[in-house]
Amino acid sequence: MTQAPARPCAESAPHLGWSRDEMAQLVACDIADGSYVNLGIGIPELVAAHVPRGHELVFHTENGLLGVGPPPDDAHADPELINAGKKPITALPGAAYFHHADSFAMIRGGHLDVSVLGAMQVSMRGDLANWMTNEKDAIPAVGGAMDLVAGVKTVIVLTEHTTKTGEPKLVESCTYPLTGVGVVDRVYTNLAVIDVTANGFVVRAIAPGITFEDLARKTGAPLVDGRGERSILP
């Protein structure tokens, strides 16, 4: 299956380190050829456009399709063919539709290789918070995130390194309600690629123009310098 062309980024604010497309490209290049992958809403959606030539990844959308293709032009959008973000998609040759219980059996049963999600906070123990803040009056909504982190073999977070107001998203301990406990394997941000290990956060790569000290200042937990080779996922 061939993959979707890049969609333009919604935001193009001045940006430290890697761009969103570069972040997505790093993830796409680190996923093993032949993997089954679920992409979350937001920056993770960009990963589909950066699969290396010669590699084939099969993208899953939890509302019921394996073999997600690029978005259609407006004239070919079908309200019955959408992704988990409720946006129009296409189905590639070799695709398969299925109902929700089968879709989540794929997820929970460990059949999917990689889940790429956004995050509000990730703790040094791999706890993930990405479904609600502590805001009073917020309407709680969880969707499929808790199932993905509980069941998919490798869980990748792809997110900006800090919040819009500059607060670290990588922290010692999450202050927001958890999506899962000890579930995150690796984090890709605009500043670094960081593994979550038994020793906490281990830095595998840093974006050009960023020093280890810069990174440490923008991170809310200790960092171990482990720059060099990183493993292919899952």
Partner: peptide, 14 residues
């Protein structure tokens, strides 16, 4: 509101 993770909702129905 009874909030249920999506896969748990599907499996409860199944």
């Amino acid at each position: 509101l009874e909030l249920v993770p999506q896969g748990t909702l599907a499996e409860r129905i199944r």
